[in-house]
Simulated scan of single mutants.
Amino acid sequence: MLQKTISLDVPDSHDDHGASNTVLGFWVYLMTDCIIFASLFAVFAVMGHQFAGGPTGQSLFEIPGVALETGILLLSSITFGFGMLAAHKGKTNTLLAWLGITFLLGVAFIGLEIHEFSVLIAQGAGPDRSAFLSAFFTLVGTHGLHVTVGLVWMAILAVQVIGNKKLTERDLTRLTCLSLFWHFLDIVWICVFTFVYLTSVV
């Protein structure tokens, strides 16, 4: 009887360690992502004034539109937070509702970013116009790619939660990792908004 009790306790311990290791490993991944974005910010700092006779950020960037993008992404971070609260309470339907809202906000952000890129390219201010624009498109585009990956990840998790019909520990671990990723992208975007857009129009 004692042996049976011990054998039942061991898997729970392993599950706890597995979840902790997964989250820790994801933190390590985020640190490598920090290095990538830090490198792109450094490139923009060097190339940010290399206009090659082309348009400057002051003549191209429309701060109200970018501020709208920023507000949408920050709001999506809040809605994701509400979703995580629901997940920890085991409220699957509420979680899915908040994930749906977060997903729509993320899609709206990407839509605005694609619109901005298309307008700039139509004006002849594409990434091949100058070093400044190459650095801009690379940095902002890399962030947009990350948001897109986050949206795909979010959709997959939502489908898995619906399929399971009940939240599992593995679902919570995956949602926690996605939450870290999504909030990280918000922080990076605040840096982009401040360092790239605001400093370029001053």
Rank of each mutant, 00 (worst) to 15 (best):
T5N: 10
I6K: 07
I6H: 08
D9I: 15
D16L: 08
D16A: 14
H17N: 12
H17F: 15
T22W: 10
V23T: 06
V23I: 11
W27K: 11
V28L: 13
V28W: 06
Y29M: 07
D33V: 13
C34V: 13
I36L: 08
F37Q: 05
F37P: 03
A42V: 08
F44L: 04
F44C: 02
A45F: 14
M47V: 09
M47Y: 15
G48M: 05
G48Y: 09
H49D: 15
Q50V: 14
F51Y: 12
G57A: 03
L60T: 07
L60E: 10
F61M: 05
F61T: 10
F61S: 05
P64Y: 08
P64W: 10
G65Y: 07
E69N: 10
E69M: 15
T70A: 13
I72T: 03
I78V: 14
T79E: 02
G83W: 00
M84T: 03
L85W: 13
N93L: 02
L95Y: 00
L99F: 00
I101F: 01
I101T: 09
L104V: 12
V107M: 07
A108L: 03
F109H: 01
L112T: 00
E113I: 04
I114G: 03
H115S: 13
H115M: 13
E116D: 12
F117N: 06
F117W: 05
A122K: 02
Q123H: 12
A125I: 10
G126W: 01
P127L: 03
D128C: 06
D128T: 11
S130Q: 01
S130N: 00
A131F: 15
A131Y: 15
F132M: 05
L133C: 01
S134C: 09
F137R: 02
V140H: 04
G141E: 07
G144N: 04
L145P: 09
L145M: 15
H146R: 04
T148S: 14
V149I: 15
V152Q: 03
W153I: 02
W153V: 02
M154G: 07
L157C: 06
A158Y: 03
V159P: 05
Q160P: 03
K166C: 11
L167M: 04
T168W: 12
E169F: 14
E169D: 14
C177A: 12
C177E: 11
C177H: 06
L178C: 07
S179N: 10
L180N: 11
F181E: 08
W182C: 03
W182N: 02
H183K: 06
H183V: 10
F184W: 11
D186L: 07
I187S: 13
W189P: 09
W189D: 14
I190Y: 12
V196F: 09
V196W: 05
T199W: 08
S200W: 06
S200C: 05
V201F: 02
